[in-house]
């Protein structure tokens, strides 16, 4: 039964290998690496800030769009329509999760980005042109498009877990609320959501972890430039897209080591999200007294 220990060994190996390879960069830049916006292979000056910024902002865009949307879809399929239709809609939404990320990338670059450039971005620039968020030429590729595609990619995960949670709400609770004359929305808000809020937060964590590390789709559309800009129209990069673009090409040991350190930061970020979500799950289990 030693096979089970392959898992802890792998995790250990991941940390050891990544830390080992990033030692030159850790020694050279120290903690400054995390807050330095530089990414200059010519002068051997590297910093993670622009990649971390891109990762967090694109994830943030994805979350603020995907969470409400997923909640609405889950409510729709569990509470508002007959179970048969709900299941069909649920399965269809879950198919979004089965589409490989590189296909999101293809579609994003060839179909969605031109659509953004021609229709969505000019519209946003017209209504919010004075905001720094929507400055710059509408080229379709960039932070906003990456965030939107990420939202679409994590939508099925959050929807699926959320609707499972909603299904677990005891029917007698809902029925008594209906019996008192509550509308569907009131039942959803006061009973279903309140009962399932912990599960919804857990689902959010799941989506968050996905969005942080998503690589291919983001690499296709984010624009790949090491810059921190308030505008969502300009090109940016994420940790994962930087790795995909530059990893095989870093000819200098410090460059390679800095890239690996970026990877290490991403690993730590996702592990932190994992730990938080596990803690949350445990809290929830204690509260409801049953497993998920």
């Amino acid at each position: 039964m030693g096979s089970a220990f392959v898992l802890p060994l792998l995790i250990l190996g991941l940390f050891v290998a990544l830390t080992g390879l990033s030692l030159p960069s850790i020694k050279r830049f120290g903690l400054h690496f995390i807050v330095s916006p530089a990414w200059n292979p010519v002068k051997h000056d590297f910093g993670a800030l622009s990649s971390i910024y891109g990762t967090l902002v694109s994830t943030f865009i994805a979350m603020i769009l995907a969470v409400p949307l997923s909640l609405a879809i889950a409510l729709f399929q569990v509470e508002l329509v007959p179970p048969v239709i709900g299941r069909v809609v649920g399965s269809a939404i879950e198919l979004l999760a089965a589409i490989p990320s590189i296909i999101y990338g293809m579609w994003g670059l060839f179909v969605f980005a031109p659509f953004m450039a021609d229709h969505v971005q000019p519209f946003l620039a017209r209504i919010g042109g004075n905001l720094p968020l929507f400055k710059g030429p509408p080229m379709g590729i960039g932070m906003l498009t990456a965030g939107l595609i990420l939202a679409l990619m994590i939508l099925p995960f959050i929807t699926s877990v959320t609707s499972d949670v909603f299904r677990m709400v005891p029917a007698h609770l809902k029925e008594s609320a209906y019996g008192m004359g509550s509308t569907t929305f009131e039942v959803a808000r006061k009973i279903t959501l309140r009962y399932g809020i912990d599960g919804v937060v857990g689902a959010g964590f799941l989506g968050l972890g996905r969005a942080l590390g998503e690589t291919m789709a983001v690499t296709f559309v984010i624009g790949n430039s090491h810059r921190i800009s308030a505008s969502l129209f300009t090109g940016a990069n994420s940790i994962a897209s930087t790795l995909a673009n530059e990893f095989t090409e870093a000819s200098d040991p410090l460059y390679l080591s800095s890239l690996v350190e970026l990877g290490l930061i991403l690993l730590i970020l996702t592990v932190m999200v994992q730990i938080l979500s596990q803690l949350w799950l445990r809290r929830m289990r204690r509260k409801t007294g049953k497993g998920m």
Binding site: P41, V42, K43, M139, G142, S225, H226, N237, E249
Partner: peptide, 9 residues
Amino acid sequence: AVSWPTGVG
């Protein structure tokens, strides 16, 4: 690879 003052990659 240089630190580009502007643009997308």
